[in-house]
Amino acid sequence: MLSIRDLHARIGARKILKGLDLEVRAGEVHAIMGPNGSGKSTLASVLAGRDGYEVTAGRVEYDGRDLLALAPEERARAGVFLAFQYPVEIPGVNNAYLLKAALNAIRRERGLPEVDAFEFLALVRGKMQLMQMDESFLNRGVNEGFSGGEKKRNEILQMAVLEPRLALLDETDSGLDIDALRVVANGVNSLRSPDRAVVLVTHYQRLLDYVEPDVVHVLYDGRILKSGDKSLALELERRGYDWVRQEAQVA
């Protein structure tokens, strides 16, 4: 589904990704772990199409399409979803309004009829129960005055409603207490299906206690240094990252 080959990217003059390879198939959940500054968030931003990142080499294919050639909204409509590490506040713009506009834009792309206000509400209510979110959320401005945990839950709610084929979660677990973490994990697990894939970018393995990854990658200095199954995450938690680097140098 997602195929990244020799990806190089930089911000200004600073090189961040230095030849990253990654293969994600439908039905899989991948976790990308790595220390601060290894390029985790850059990878998520490049995949979602944020400005300010320059791809200097490499290819990213999504369902056989050149993902990097698409505008951010085209990626979203094609089924790529990024849960932001720091969701932005948009004062005055109603949460439900954005979500409905997004849902209908994606449905149009998929050749589905647009949902009206009633259908939308019914759909969202169901998802909100799953996220243990109060309905008043819908009528607030997008992330306006939300706590850190509320913002993250709102990201997962959007994901649950938009039902992406490829979900990228950028450190969605950071700063969450145990209850919120469970809620987020529920949201991710409910999305798992044979035709979808999830990429979790994270610093800690605690989210992986609740969402079991098929593959764990170690991202270090802009490259995937090592891949393995979920036991790798536990090992990283125990031993840190240095041993991976040393191992890679030896090899």
Binding site: G49, E73, P87, I90, A102, I106, L162
Partner: peptide, 12 residues
């Protein structure tokens, strides 16, 4: 803000 909305599928 623009990027956030666009990454949800909303046109610029």
């Amino acid at each position: 803000q623009l990027f956030y909305c666009r990454s949800r599928g909303v046109s610029e």
